[in-house]
Design a binder for these strands. Structure first.
Lengths: 342, 342
DNA sequence: TTCCCTAACTTGAACGATCAAATCATGCAT
DNA sequence: ATGCATGATTTGATCGTTCAAGTTAGGGAA
């Protein structure tokens, strides 16, 4: 059995009052150096650790950060969420916080989860992923004054009242496109998502920009479709059939890229369905998922660990004192992981 | 601002004492039906939710379950952990628990994390993944009487004092092997991990068993190597070169299977390194990771969601009353997901 | 009627920490 | 010597809940 050591035990053993122990731990500067030393020795000796529940009762702070865990979505792009959670957990521990998980399907279910969590466990803040236009979650939290950061910029509001951290997707596709241009490709297509999603539009914009920089247009060079392998394959086939001049494809995701590869490859391997032959086409994906690594797909990699630690740091500074600090926005650059596919 | 509703607020509004409110919520049978109704109405009306911290102080129970989140390991097999965490979180919510994350690298770091967590947040239980021979974590927890379940059987101890849930790996590879036999394959090789890991040995055993059942031996038909794509490719090439009669391979993981596919495929697609041609060989992997789905690899799928919910249910029943219940062991059957590779 | 028992509910204390206010020296200017 | 800041420490109250013991009302047996 674990013998519980309370602040009173430490106080008694050190010959001081509870409050002095509390002070040595929380506001050391108000305690005389000698006393501080003695108390810390006893703390060490008895193995005292502050009880979160009791502290939370008095201070109202739980030192918990809540984050959502998703079911692996399409199975391919899911890995981003997990890397993010891992990063959060690690940085949180360093800042004296812990990550509390919840699940929810859809914005409304998620705000309901907020409500539940706030009522019972009182997390100090939330970290949201995958923000989108008109995100109801952010307004819900903002209205109630609950601190939060988002991974994903505030698409609808250039001067959002909350912090966000995001990856510069356009810079990523721009780098990918330049990389292909440098290899001699001139007609470079784009496979993306239907217009209206901030992330998707941003990624398309980077591709467009890179082509525009060298005086190339984009008409007839892109297709928009649902984010999955089969639709990607379909769209790629359509695009390549219509425009035989295309020699490379930049994709908004690894799922789409994988679909494109099914088309792009010269006579397919026996274990892949289809096997329809086509001219070789370079393909670049987005997110550098495990699948990309496994099959040698060049892909844009988001610095997820940095995003996570930045999110947490922004929160921590605001929670630990700087409550009124103005919101900060961080846009991190992705990197291109070059492999055999392009 | 969120107006905090306390049990005293409810008591006042319902014209009863605090304790009666507490009783209606925790032991309804001791409260008169009419009173109960009235209290519940007020609870509803005011939106009262019990404050976990305060409850924890009094009862010593936090309703938190701690689980480790891993960095995506080799990037391919990582997805199992995430599916597991998701399952845990979902079932936990249903049972009135929440999942608290931590990270740790190695058994000793993990027991240190246990110590920290128990001191501060007092989780009611731990869920461990990937148990191995001589696991120091389980003994640490057991010595201190901390409740826990493991995903992964207690390899060293057939009558372990704690609950575990595991997937019958041998049954999985046995099914895979039978599937290949049914397709007419006679010489079926196995790609696995070095002897000594419970999981790896178990998976090899299923393959051996299936062959033995039809009177086939296994000498010269298997290779053991580190769990990654490149070693898998190497071992597969070696195995197939030495024994030209082999027409199929069962693998202990999707990573190894992917390596095997690099060898097994008839002339490789342009975007894959190597491209050395070989006769077609059927390949079956293990874990049904996103990569398997993406490239059409037949694979043994573990029922991770069921494992997670079972783990949590075992814990929950023991935490909520049945503390002295004898440990239960659950061995769940995997299933074979057949795709183009075999 | 008196007494006891039980069901239903209430009261006071406690969990372990921190906040706010009180106490106690100590030094320094008046 | 008196008064008064200032620094260091202590005391009492409090956060919201549940436990343990206490109270009250109503019934039935003696």
């Amino acid at each position: 059995m674990a013998e519980k050591v309370t602040i009173a035990d430490v106080a008694r053993a050190a010959g001081v009052s509870r409050q002095t122990v509390s002070n040595t731990l929380n506001t050391p500067e108000v305690v005389r150096a000698e006393t501080r030393r003695r108390v810390l020795d006893v703390v060490e000796e008895l193995g005292y650790r502050v009880n979160q529940a009791a502290r939370q009762m008095r201070t109202g702070r739980s030192r918990l950060i809540a984050a959502r865990i998703d079911p692996e979505q399409d199975g391919i792009n899911g890995s981003v969420g997990d890397r993010f959670l891992h990063g959060l957990t690690e940085t949180a521990a360093r800042e004296g916080y812990r990550v509390l998980l919840y699940t929810a399907d859809g914005d409304d279910a998620e705000t309901a989860a907020f409500d539940d969590l706030l009522g019972a466990y009182e997390p100090d803040a939330f970290v949201l992923m995958a923000t989108h236009h008109g995100d109801r979650r952010t307004s819900w939290l903002a209205e109630r004054g609950v601190p939060f950061v988002t991974f994903g910029r505030a698409w609808s509001d250039p001067a959002a009242p909350h912090c966000w951290v995001d990856v510069d997707g356009a810079a990523g596709t721009e780098a990918a496109t330049r990389h292909l241009l440098a290899q001699g490709h001139r007609r470079i297509g784009f496979l993306g998502w239907p217009e209206g999603s901030g992330v998707g539009d941003d990624r398309r914009e980077g591709w467009r920009r890179a082509l525009a920089e060298v005086g190339l247009g984009v008409t007839g060079l892109h297709r928009e479709t649902e984010d999955d392998v089969a639709p990607g394959e379909h769209a790629a086939r359509d695009l390549l059939d219509r425009d035989p001049g295309i020699t490379a494809l930049v994709c908004a995701s690894d799922s789409l890229a994988l679909g494109a590869l099914h088309v792009a490859r010269a006579p397919g391997p026996a274990w892949l369905a289809g096997g329809q032959s086509h001219r070789p086409v370079a393909v670049v994906g987005f997110d550098d998922t495990p699948v990309a690594k496994a099959i040698g797909l060049t892909s844009v990699r988001q610095p997820i660990a940095e995003v996570a630690s930045s999110c947490l740091r922004l929160l921590a500074t605001r929670l630990d004192g700087g409550a009124g600090a103005p919101p900060e926005y961080l846009l991190l650059p992705p990197s291109l992981v070059v492999r055999a596919s392009g």
